[in-house]
Nucleic acid binder design. Sequence first.
DNA 1: AGGTATGTTAATTG
DNA 2: GCAATTAACATACC
Length: 259
Amino acid sequence: MPELPEVELYSRYFARHALHQRIARVRVLDERILGRETKAKFAAALRGRSFARVRRHGKHLFADAGERWLHLHFGMTGDLAYYRDDPPRFARVIFDFDTGAHLAFEDMRIFGIADLTPDPETYVAEHRLGPDPLAADFGLRQFRERIARKRGVVKAVLMSQEVIAGVGNLYADETLYQTSIHPKRPVDTLDPSEVKAIFTTMRTLLRAVIAQKSAGRDYPHRYLIPNRDTGERCPRCGGTIQRTTVQQRTTYFCARHQK
DNA sequence: AGGTATGTTAATTG
DNA sequence: GCAATTAACATACC
């Protein structure tokens, strides 16, 4: 279930449980999760080491293992599980720590990836990821510059990981819903105040969801997310929630107040 | 049985 | 070169 806020929670979970323990063994249960990395190289790079710290960039998680960093991407169904007894059903890679505990990277659909990278900066550069919208040095000016170079519909731009890294289908819809902008508005028709509203709303939203979820709470009722269904009543204006498609992704919006 | 699912990439078409 | 579209990846659920 991973967009930026979820990966931020995974990252905190990783940091809370899985640092500073010697990795006694690396078990790759399904090699497809490694991408083009080989099982032998992957295991050899991590075995005997320990994770010193974690970093997140967009939807990507990195864990420092000394020579190299472990890189995790969670696809649609990735998750982490730290446990002592029974591994999760869809565990694809398991790190056995010498403490007797285990960290599993699980991913039912295997759209995610677990591999190695020299460091997060290298990965971000190689994959042309845009800035993380919650990074301390990410600002409105930068957001404007990056958006100004794009064409096409606004939702596609928000979801493009090269523009900004971390927003996916749900939070793109939610951001546009909260800013009253139609997901199919051509991005070059947005006026400066709308771009600013997207910037501010998106960051507030991402932070709020992190806080909300880390406190174990559900999405607020006034969000679009819990009302993502054709024919639902818009909790903001009483309009009707409609469905369309953008970039092959199901898109919900309020037909009354999103223009 | 068919449609859908919080993601990404490659190939194709305009 | 860019944007839109389609397919592919793999699995479960309703």
